[in-house]
């Protein structure tokens, strides 16, 4: 069931999230470029043919749009400042009630550079997350989730399994429409009503089948109230911490407290779970290596820029490529 060559899905996510954190710390064109390049190379050489593997292509498109939009807004609405003027956009007079808002004006080189670098950070962030979601098989990710998320995981497993079926159903129903002499192009009603009926019937059958196979069978263990109580306390602390943050006070201590309480609650919930896992995918040496490289990339990204550092960061971010081969699709 588990292809030996694929990495544990959570390892892919640890890699993607590490790169995302690294981008938030790297304020340099070359460092960001290294991260983006590494993410793209790893993804395109290691992804499978599954539909989710497209995530990076979509992510890159979205990131490009965001980058361009951001540059465009920055140029159009820029606040006048000192610097080398590259070109000037004619000023547009805005009505009185919009006082303080500028449209058009001088565009300086410093400004463009600054905006571009900032935009590149966002670009890298989107690419890093999209890369992980291209590489980690969502179904295996769901299976690898800890027990607290099991029920939602099952709902999502059902959903992800059924989506291709429903896409087929829509095609089949549209064909049936044509056979009944329907020439309407969209015919939302005539497509969606049968689809829904089918989906709901299927839900009942599924529920029956799950019930008949012991789903939801649970021996009572642990105190069911305790995790919720801990969660409540954790969120309360988090709210306090955030309010401190917003009004400009120190927030660090309460934040740490809040996060520990939340983790404790999740841990308790997980312990109350009595399900077992069949042949769970192993977290091996390669996975630990990828995780370690992720942590190193975060550390490197915070250092001050040298060319050597950029090369190193690129190599570290590229790490998964050395321990994996292309993802294979199940037939």
């Amino acid at each position: 069931m588990v292809d030996v060559r694929t990495l544990h899905p959570l390892a892919w996510w640890s890699w993607g999230i590490s790169l995302a954190i690294a981008t938030s710390r790297a304020g340099n064109f070359w460092l960001l470029g290294g991260i983006i390049l590494a993410a793209v190379i790893v993804t395109f050489s290691r992804r499978s043919d599954d539909p989710w593997a497209n995530a990076l292509s979509i992510g890159i498109k979205i990131a490009c749009i965001a980058l361009l939009l951001r540059m465009f807004i920055a140029i159009l609405f820029s606040i006048p400042e000192q610097g080398k003027v590259l070109f000037t956009i004619p000023r547009i007079k805005l009505p009185q009630w919009l006082a303080g808002i500028f449209l058009g004006g001088d565009v300086t080189q410093e400004r463009l550079q600054f905006v571009f670098l900032e935009s590149l950070t966002i670009f890298a962030l989107v690419v890093a997350i999209a890369a992980a979601s291209s590489l980690a098989n969502p179904k295996q990710t769901l299976r690898a989730l800890p027990g607290v998320l099991h029920e939602a995981g099952v709902a999502l497993i059902i959903a992800t399994t059924l989506i291709p079926h429903f896409v087929m159903s829509v095609k089949r129903i549209r064909q049936a429409r044509a056979l009944r002499g329907d020439v309407e192009k969209f015919g939302f009603k005539k497509t969606l009503v049968p689809l829904f009926e089918e989906a709901l019937e299927r839900a009942l059958i599924l529920a029956e089948s799950m019930e008949a196979r012991g789903y939801g069978h649970k021996p009572k263990n642990g105190n069911p109230l305790l995790p919720t109580l801990a969660m409540f306390a954790g969120l309360f602390a988090l709210l306090y911490s955030i309010i401190s943050l917003v009004i400009g006070n120190s927030y660090q201590i309460s934040l740490v407290l809040a996060l520990s309480l939340i983790m404790f609650s999740l841990y308790l919930g997980n312990r109350n779970n009595s399900r077992t896992k069949y042949r769970p995918q192993k977290w091996g040496l390669r996975e630990s290596f990828v995780l370690l490289m992720g942590v190193i990339s975060i550390a490197f990204a915070g250092l001050s820029f040298t060319l050597l550092l950029a090369v190193l960061l690129f190599l570290v971010a590229l790490a998964p490529i050395f321990v994996t081969s292309r993802e294979r699709v199940l037939t």
Partner: peptide, 16 residues
């Protein structure tokens, strides 16, 4: 069927 491969389907009940 709840899952999408044969082996996973066989263990669904036992896991619960």
């Amino acid at each position: 069927f709840v899952t999408d491969t044969v082996e996973e389907e066989l263990v669904f009940g036992m896991e619960s």
